[in-house]
Nucleic acid binder design. Structure first.
Lengths: 188, 188
DNA sequence: CTAGTGATGACATTACGTGTCATCAGGGTA
DNA sequence: TACCCTGATGACACGTAATGTCATCACTAG
């Protein structure tokens, strides 16, 4: 294709994951990552806005994908049904990636700066979901509440699924979490 | 008391807010803030872990206060009642501070790095709430779900209250948001 | 009077992140 | 073939954030 390997971002991500596992996040410098991938520091920052960003390469398209799924969902669905269906659909796609996601999650959990970035990514997901709901004509005052509630369920379920010793499928965990929330809110 | 003004952190916060409003967050340097407060850069970083932290000085005790309120709440409350009551109680305390909170919120909204930190603070609140719920003997599997749902309601309500042209009280907004969520989850 | 405490100043240093220009392979066009 | 254009990268300089370390000096306790 070009004179350079076309996968600079992927090579940087791979090198970063390896170094983060061995030396920790804060114990690894960007020049180390770049050199390990055969590139320069400047090129690292062309592909990632900052050092933390390299751990979230796989999340870039996620909000748009989920948003598109919501926008293209069947008619006659309520807001809550849309959110459930859209996030459940995304959960199915993740099912095959448990191991690499778990590896990454352990790195994120080890550093508060990374947890912070993870929360921002969750917020971006919530914004995409909220936007899609508005686009579908859902009652405007409810969109943000639905979107944020959905991403909370999604996030909690993802972690239960990752860390559960005997793990049921992610969609199953999510469905159970929705049921839990409904039970809790309806009262005794 | 001491040879120095005892309110170094407060003076730094005041100077920072002024500069952020005039020049923006990224357009202001830490040396500027420190000099404006009559202190050195090194002292700034003794009071705040990083540049962003100066905007969240008022939030430091908040999770612990809410957690203590939950721990000391009346007996015989369910998990959901505890969360509602605890956050409603916190909302009452905030009622008098609408203007300064709004000022700060506008700065936060202007910079993604600050929104990111805000999300981390929200997460700390959720952790404190979850911990208090566990301490109260609430069903362990429900605590995180309740805590995160509560903080989502709290956060959305706070922003509605801040930006509503005709603002009902924050507790009122929160109560309405809880009712909205219950209605949405119970379905038609 | 003296020793100890604690917040600050002063200085050095590392690492993050950005601006800018040069380089060079491949693709399109005449 | 010859030419220009595009885009990703390298090389270099630079400002800023953030931390480690030691010195300073008012206040306090005894």
């Amino acid at each position: 294709m070009t004179r350079w390997s076309p996968d600079a971002a992927l090579r940087l991500e791979e090198a970063a994951l390896l170094l983060f596992e061995r030396q920790g996040f804060s114990g690894t410098t960007v020049p180390q990552i770049a050199q390990s991938a055969g590139l320069t520091t400047r090129t690292f920052f062309r592909h990632f806005v900052d050092k933390r960003d390299v751990l979230f390469l796989r999340d870039r398209e996620f909000p748009d994908v989920v948003g598109a799924a919501l926008t293209g969902a069947p008619e006659n669905l309520t807001g809550i049904e849309l959110v459930k269906a859209g996030l459940l659909n995304a959960a199915v796609e993740l099912e095959a990636w448990r191991e690499p996601i778990l590896t990454r999650q352990k790195i994120i959990a080890s550093d508060e700066q990374l947890r912070e970035r993870e929360l921002l990514k969750r917020e971006h997901l919530a914004e995409a979901v909220g936007k899609a709901l508005r686009h579908r004509g859902i009652n405007a005052g409810d969109c943000d509440l639905l979107a944020h509630t959905g991403t909370v369920i999604f996030d909690l379920s993802l972690k239960r699924w990752l860390y559960a010793p005997d793990s049921p499928s992610l969609p199953q965990v999510m469905t159970m979490a929705w049921a839990d929330l409904e039970r809790l809110l309806e009262g005794p």
